[in-house]
């Protein structure tokens, strides 16, 4: 049956999921929006969620899964509480992105695409975040931009995210 990423109880979660689906019932065109909001709610997109969305919007599970696996934003597995997204734009690449990733790996012990065993951090590489003037840059939890990061600053930055 349904798995649940948080402790709110599956029924409550299903209800909230249905609230996201409701405005798009029978409208396949809303798929990406529904997936985005559902991932915001649940943290990732497990099978039971995709099944519910498929049935709600009237598309096949194959279609839903095809979309989920096409777009980099969607995740099939639970992610850490904090998402460390290292910018892989050209400017960041030219200005030391590789060193930044290596340093982050050294500190948190996981490779890009992975989550720390304590579920605190997920490390990932993202496409240009548009902070090229601040290269190399990293965006945490999709909102906090940290620019011109020197390796020795990393512990201090990470401290802000429990």
């Amino acid at each position: 049956m349904a798995e649940c990423a948080c402790n709110c109880g599956e029924d409550e979660l299903t209800k909230q999921l249905d609230k996201i689906i409701d405005p798009y019932r029978g409208q396949p065109g809303g798929l990406i929006q529904v997936l985005t909001k559902s991932q915001e709610l649940i943290g990732y997109l497990p099978k039971w969620v995709q099944v519910r969305i498929a049935e709600g919007l009237g598309v096949s599970l194959q279609e839903v899964y095809g979309v989920v696996t096409f777009y980099a934003f969607f995740s099939l597995i639970p992610r850490g509480r904090h998402k460390l997204s290292v910018c892989a734009g050209t400017a960041c690449y030219v200005k030391g992105m590789k060193t930044l990733i290596k340093s982050l790996r050294d500190v948190i012990g996981v490779k890009p695409g992975q989550t720390t065993p304590d579920s605190r951090f997920t490390l990932e590489i993202v496409r240009c975040i548009g902070a090229c003037g601040l290269a190399p840059a990293m965006i945490v939890d999709g909102k906090d931009v940290h620019g011109r990061i020197e390796p020795e600053q990393i512990p201090e930055i990470l401290e802000q995210y429990a």
């Binding site: 990406i32 929006q33 997936l35 985005t36 096409f70 777009y71 980099a72 969607f74 496409r127």
Partner: peptide, 8 residues
């Protein structure tokens, strides 16, 4: 508004 989902 339509929001992309990470595909260049």
């Amino acid at each position: 508004i339509r929001i992309g989902a990470g595909a260049f």
